[in-house]
Computed example of a mutant assay.
Amino acid sequence: MKFHTRKWVKPEDLNPNKTLFGGKLLAWIDEEAALYSIIQLENAHVVTKFMSEINFMASAKEGDIIEIGLDVVKFGTTSLVLNCQVRNKMTHETIITVDKITMVNLDADGNPKPHGKTKIEYVHERLSKKE
C-alpha cells in the first residue's frame, strides 16, 4: 500500500470523546480517493459511487499524524476500484480500513465515460512518454 497523504489531527477534527471524528476522517478519505482517481484517469470529472464496509479499528487523538494509503484493486471500463487504509504515522497502528471505494469517470454532462486505463501510471512515466 502506498501512503499518499498525511493529516495532522487538530482540535477542530475531534468528536466529544476527544478523538478524531469519523465523519472528518471519511471526508479526508473521499477527497484522497478523488484526487488519486483524477490523477490516474486524467480527468477532473470523477465521483465516488460506492464505499464498502468501513472498519474503524483504532482512534486517533489530537496531535496524531495520520496517513492515508490507497491501492488500486481493479480498473473497470468507466471506474476505478480502490482499497484504503489509514494508519498512525508514528506507530503504524491501523485506524480504519475500507475494502472497496468505487470512483466513476464522467464526461462533461455527468455520464459515465470509458477511461481506457488498464494499469497504474505514475506522472513521471507520463512525462517521459512526452519527451
Rank of each mutant, 00 (worst) to 15 (best):
H124R: 03
I120Y: 08
K74H: 13
E131R: 08
N105R: 00
T5N: 09
M90S: 15
S79L: 11
F50L: 13
V46K: 07
Q40R: 12
T48L: 12
K2G: 01
E62K: 10
I39G: 08
R6W: 00
A108S: 15
M1E: 02
E42M: 08
E42Q: 15
F3G: 01
S37D: 00
K100Y: 04
T48H: 05
D64R: 05
K7E: 11
D30E: 12
T102C: 08
D30M: 04
I38G: 00
I54V: 15
K7Y: 04
Y36I: 03
N17V: 05
Q40M: 07
V72D: 00
M90D: 14
F50N: 09
K119T: 11
K18C: 06
T78C: 04
N55W: 04
E12G: 05
N43V: 13
E125Q: 14
P16Q: 09
V86T: 14
S37F: 02
F21W: 08
S52Y: 13
T118Y: 06
M1F: 03
A60C: 11
K130C: 03
N55V: 12
A60S: 15
V86I: 15
V72A: 03
N15S: 04
V86E: 05
K100C: 04
S79A: 12
L14D: 03
M90T: 15
V104P: 02
N17K: 06
L25F: 01
G76T: 07
V86Q: 11
D64L: 02
V86D: 07
L41K: 10
T91R: 03
S52H: 07
F56K: 05
P16D: 11
L106I: 06
G76C: 09
S52L: 13
N105A: 00
E53Y: 09
L70G: 05
E93I: 14
